[in-house]
Design a protein around this nucleic acid. Structure first.
Lengths: 337, 337
DNA sequence: ATAGGTTGTCGAAGCGCTTCGACAGCTTTC
DNA sequence: GAAAGCTGTCGAAGCGCTTCGACAACCTAT
């Protein structure tokens, strides 16, 4: 391995000069800089990460905690992770992948050892056990998701309440009065995942304002579960003409079952999805949907984090505004005749 | 931050003793060990990662290179990544997430800087540009995937040729003579991704032995693309009664289109998937399929890598045997009457 | 009783880098 | 023309750990 000292010798300067060329923290004459850069190239020098971290107490690593569970839409997680990794590199950081498995211990370990300078946490529950630690760890963090108490935290998330409201709004405008919500798996609600509950809140309060009736049912996804869920919904509310689906693995089963029962989409019933655009456009009926801006979330999270690391930013909450795209699955409610 | 020296002082021993307690590289009396461990706990000590890496030239980090593209089944990638992270922790390693974006430069950067001790590379092409570098980098690596030339490399992969053969075998046994293969997106073949080509090879050579005809068509996935692809296939080979699908986003569209055309599964046509079990069991017809053992692949990769890091293993190739599960989508070919 | 092993602990060197203070050689200012 | 200020470079200290050799203290065998 080539060391800084060797580069310095090769370039005929001192080690500190090479270091300053690399970091730009002191001014260096153009000729010296060029000579050093030349030597770096010739020797194929790469600064040693450990030594650098030790001397500067900065590792240039961001830890990303992803959930271990896969009961939520995995491609979204992956897209966020990739966006985080890509954006981090743009700012000179690498990304350490932590699974939720270790729980709070991971936070202690990573911040305690100086392995990472900062942390991005996904899949945050409303009252997450990692929050107290993150608040007092001394290292910056950004949550992707929104807990109940955001004091002392920076959060980035889609505005799920507005998302729910937007779906109801759309259906209300089309004249629908009875709306069913196909939700995530029951487990997601049981552990009080922020996005699921907020979506419901937004949905319900907008429905109240607009005078719609809302029936919410969690659903595991897949054909069998969806069949049972749909049967129950239609049994309880036969007049249901609008569906909001927040569960990617329920989308296609729902469409298939409706078709099978002779209910035409969008003539008889309208369906609005809350899902990535890819799911919406690849479904058997092109789905009217609110997109999940996974890339934006990952990108914003890193940018906020880097800003905090540079001391350019304080804690705050960023909620991305939802956008609804009308496609082929929603239309006017059939008139009561 | 608590340092080793502080722990040593608190426990009334020298720094090196604390270090040896931590690493277990020299014998320590039970009483001393306990005193030190006690101090560690009381002070909440975490060894500094940078200092450790510098002194030992081991970072205890494994780099994982995942593809940036998302034209292949993302949940499989994610499952592998999670398995890698989980297994790595079991062996005391953390995982650094690299996207394919930087390409070969990432290999140079990470190994050159000593950021990672070793590397796992996913989405390997048959003649991948990263291979020469990996061969001579001096640091162990494991590929998830199988390039053309495996000399000097360790690889873990599903035996895709056997997988293809197994699918044909199953259909042949059921009496099917004309088989169509719905493949991944054209781009996947264009860049000579190992798994896609090997599956085809396995399929074709087994088909030759068994006297079946095979028609292969790449497919982007989604309803529209699948509709076009299916029409072409049935136009060219109207007698097709067996389908092999190696593209998760084509599974459901294919089933729906067949249904729509009045071709019953499995009475008229049989469908065999190459996909994760979750996809197979959640489809509208429970799919006979060969599973993709994502978790095993991630786990094996890490275990091989750790073994190499410990000097316990040489380069080799591990091919996991495919397993076909018969479900509701395959049955005897309709007799020619 | 003595040479030869063990076992458990310590001190010191050094890993490769960053960063602080010093300073030589300039230029500017009154 | 002396004081003051820049600019560009250097030397040295030190980040927190691992690891090597040294060496007491003890335990065998002869």
């Amino acid at each position: 391995m080539v060391t800084l000292a060797e580069v310095a010798q090769h370039a005929g300067v001192s080690a500190s000069t090479v270091s300053y060329v690399l970091s730009g923290k002191r001014s260096i004459s153009a000729t010296t800089r060029e000579r050093v850069e030349q030597s770096i190239r010739v020797l194929g020098y790469h600064p040693n990460a450990g030594a650098r971290a030790l001397a500067s107490s900065r590792s240039n690593i961001i830890a990303l905690m992803i959930p271990l569970r896969t009961d939520m839409y995995v491609p979204v997680m992956m897209e966020i992770a990739i966006a985080v990794a890509t954006t981090a590199r743009l700012h000179g950081y690498d990304v350490l992948l932590l699974t939720g498995e270790e729980g709070p211990d991971a936070v202690r370990r990573v911040t305690g050892s100086g392995l990472a300078d900062a942390m991005i946490v996904m899949d945050v529950e409303l009252d997450d056990e990692r929050l107290p630690l993150l608040r007092r760890t001394g290292r910056p963090s950004v949550l992707i998701g929104l807990p109940s108490d955001t004091s002392g935290l920076t959060c980035v998330d889609l505005d799920w309440a507005a998302t729910g409201a937007l779906c109801v709004e759309h259906l209300a405008t089309l004249g629908h009065r009875d709306v069913a919500v196909i939700g995530e798996a029951p487990a997601v609600y049981e552990r009080h995942t922020g996005f699921a509950e907020r979506t419901l809140d937004g949905l319900r309060s907008r429905a109240r304002e607009a005078g719609l009736r809302v029936l919410h049912r969690p659903c595991e996804g897949g054909y069998d579960a969806m069949a049972v869920t749909l049967a129950r919904i239609l049994d309880e509310r036969p007049g249901t003409t609008g569906f909001v689906v927040q569960n990617e693995s329920a989308v296609e089963p729902l469409l298939a079952l409706l078709r099978q029962q002779g209910r035409a989409v969008p003539e008889d019933v309208s369906v609005v999805g809350i899902c990535p655009d890819q799911v919406a456009t690849q479904a058997s009926v092109r789905l009217t949907s609110v997109a999940i801006p996974a890339q934006d979330m990952g990108r914003y999270a890193v940018e906020r984090l880097v800003a905090k690391l540079d001391g350019r930013r304080e804690d705050d909450v960023v909620l991305l505004a939802p956008e609804l795209t009308v496609r082929a699955s929603s239309g006017p409610a059939p008139s009561a005749g």
